[in-house]
Amino acid sequence: MTGPGTGGFVGMSKDPAEIEARIGQWAQGLAEKAQRYQAAHVETEQIRLTATSGDGAVKATVRADGSLTDLVFSERIRTMPLPTIASLVLSTMQRAQADIATQVGETMAEHLGDEDAETRAELLGNLRERFPQPPDEDEVEAADEETGKKWESIESSEEPTPPPATSPGLSAQSPSTGFQPPAGFSPPAPPPQRPAAPRRRPDDDDDFDEESDPLRD
């Protein structure tokens, strides 16, 4: 019998009893190795990594595969613009994910020792490539602050839309009663106003006749 993992059988004597004993030892070694790998797998599935933003506004928890399991916001989040919140959530998740390769490597070393060092190195290298170290938190906060200023500038530049002008008379629909006039209805025109009579001044009475004054004696 030749091939990977069967080097112990090369040069083995032809004694049937010895062959059977060697095969039993080999099978037992495979079973024990499988148990160690299973234990490492179970413990890896239970790994949870948590990171909190520097200001305490966001706390994120991830699994060993990088998926999010929990996300907690503090009251500080209420005063932040939406772009800042999104950026803060992503950066906090990345900080939690950055420790996945280290934690998985420690778990495998605990259960497997130095077994399959090449395979484990390749696995951990893939994890480090998927979940690299995030940028420095000061850089993220500076970017968030700049994004918040741009957001506030956009909000302050937005002016409220003035209400549409309405003409005197009946409106298309009364806001208090909800009355809807029939199709083709137009409000009646207001009645014309008579011009006011001009006021007479005392000096305009040029034709006043003192002889006809009834109060004269």
Results as ranks from 00 to 15, higher is better:
4 P>N: 06
9 F>Y: 10
11 G>Y: 07
17 A>K: 15
18 E>L: 14
23 I>A: 09
23 I>Q: 09
26 W>S: 07
27 A>W: 04
27 A>N: 00
28 Q>M: 08
29 G>H: 09
31 A>Q: 10
36 R>C: 08
39 A>H: 03
39 A>M: 06
42 V>L: 06
43 E>T: 03
49 L>Q: 01
50 T>S: 00
54 G>T: 02
54 G>E: 07
59 K>E: 01
62 V>G: 01
64 A>S: 13
72 V>E: 08
72 V>S: 02
73 F>I: 04
73 F>C: 05
73 F>S: 03
76 R>Y: 08
85 I>Q: 05
90 L>W: 07
96 A>H: 01
96 A>D: 05
99 D>V: 07
101 A>C: 06
101 A>R: 00
107 T>R: 03
108 M>Y: 14
109 A>N: 12
109 A>V: 00
111 H>L: 07
111 H>Y: 11
118 E>W: 07
122 E>I: 12
125 G>P: 08
126 N>E: 13
127 L>R: 13
131 F>L: 06
137 E>H: 09
140 V>Q: 01
141 E>A: 11
141 E>R: 07
151 W>N: 05
153 S>Y: 09
153 S>R: 11
153 S>E: 08
153 S>N: 11
155 E>W: 08
155 E>H: 12
157 S>R: 09
158 E>R: 14
160 P>T: 11
160 P>L: 12
166 T>E: 06
168 P>T: 01
171 S>R: 01
175 P>H: 04
183 A>R: 06
189 A>R: 11
190 P>I: 04
191 P>L: 01
192 P>I: 02
194 R>V: 09
195 P>Q: 14
196 A>D: 14
209 D>E: 09
209 D>A: 02
210 E>I: 08
214 P>I: 14
217 D>V: 05
217 D>H: 06
